[in-house]
């Protein structure tokens, strides 16, 4: 990987981050509604509202507030929540302790199911096993995750009472915290796993059709050997792309799933903060999400370059 290539990528990354912060700030400021009104409700008097706005620092000009926020971000200071009146970093930390393990569990489950299943199907192309796997993944892709979540709750929580239906007891509660994440993780992972299985399979079959693999097979390698030695590595490129895409999808997915299961995660924090017009929280958390997705995409690009040498030397 040439240093110049890397440097250009990093410059692009920084540019994207700065642009994103400006967009996020402007969008949040355009939102109609007033956090002070929401806090004080329908019986609030105008002087009370003004007092609260001043307390929240909302009476200052937009540019100063942007500078404050952006400089704060650089120092790692995310600001203070308007509604909860605690530092945003503290809130994010609490919420990440739910969302991150959930997303990790879901991704792990996705990979754990999809990669072997996809490879297995590809290696037995046109067999009954292949058709069965394809049929199952077709169904998996077709099921909306929130509907699936509702059904899981109906079966596992309401009818069988095996797993909690929602809520999160906190990590201090030990094993029951993990139990609380099982249904949400399954609901998130299965549709994703179905997609990834299909991508894995078709991508493997595609590389199997490539000349170099055909050559390898002509040289006497078995199908499975050709798969393992040559096709697998290249087949991972689209899988990586889709996995990158899925991460963003997963975050959007967690908003819905966190709502269905009443989990105190990052997605629900944003959802609530938007409704309460807790602009500081929304801004900082959305920025954090965007930054992480941009960085992940950057990593996917790097991974691309590592798996496929052809993409590196391009001028």
């Amino acid at each position: 990987m040439s240093p110049l290539w890397l440097l250009r990528r990093i410059a692009g990354l920084l540019f994207a981050l700065v642009a994103a912060s400006a967009i996020v700030f402007v969008l949040m400021d355009l939102l109609p509604g007033d956090p002070a009104e929401i806090m004080l409700g329908t019986n609030a008097r105008p002087d009370t509202l003004a007092a609260l706005r001043a307390e929240m620092g909302l009476d200052r000009p937009a540019l100063i507030r942007y500078a404050d926020w952006a400089l704060g971000l650089l120092r790692g200071d995310f600001g203070r929540s308007l509604t909860y009146s605690v530092p945003v970093a503290e809130l994010v930390q609490e919420r990440l302790a739910v969302t991150l393990p959930l997303a990790m569990m879901a991704i792990a489950l996705t990979l754990f199911i999809a990669l072997p299943l996809g490879a297995f199907a590809a290696s037995r192309r046109k067999s009954l096993t292949d058709s069965t796997i394809i049929a199952v993944t077709q169904l998996g892709v077709a099921i909306p995750n929130f509907w699936f979540a509702m059904m899981l709750v109906l079966v596992f929580a309401i009818s069988w009472r095996l797993l909690p239906s929602g809520g999160f007891p906190g990590w201090s509660a030990g094993p029951s915290a993990i139990l609380a994440l099982i249904l949400p993780a399954i609901a998130l992972a299965l549709p994703q796993a179905a997609i990834l299985t299909r991508v894995m399979r078709s991508s493997l079959l595609e590389t199997l059709g490539e000349d170099y693999v055909r050559t390898a097979r002509a040289k006497g390698l078995t199908r499975a050997e050709a798969l393992r030695r040559h096709a697998f590595r290249n087949a991972l490129i689209p899988v990586l792309t889709i996995l990158g895409l899925q991460f963003s999808f997963l975050i959007a997915g967690t908003v819905v799933i966190e709502n269905v299961f009443s989990l105190p995660g990052l997605g629900r924090l944003i959802f609530q903060a938007i409704n309460q017009r807790d602009l500081v929280v929304v801004r900082s958390v959305v920025m954090l999400l965007i930054a992480s997705i941009i960085v992940i995409n950057f990593c996917v690009d790097l991974a691309y370059a590592l798996v496929d040498p052809r993409l590196r030397g391009r001028s």
Binding site: A16, A20, L245, F249, I251, V255, I293
Partner: peptide
């Protein structure tokens, strides 16, 4: 395109 993509559809 990354930037657009970074805004999840739901948001």
């Amino acid at each position: 395109s990354d930037l657009i993509f970074a805004f999840p559809a739901l948001l």
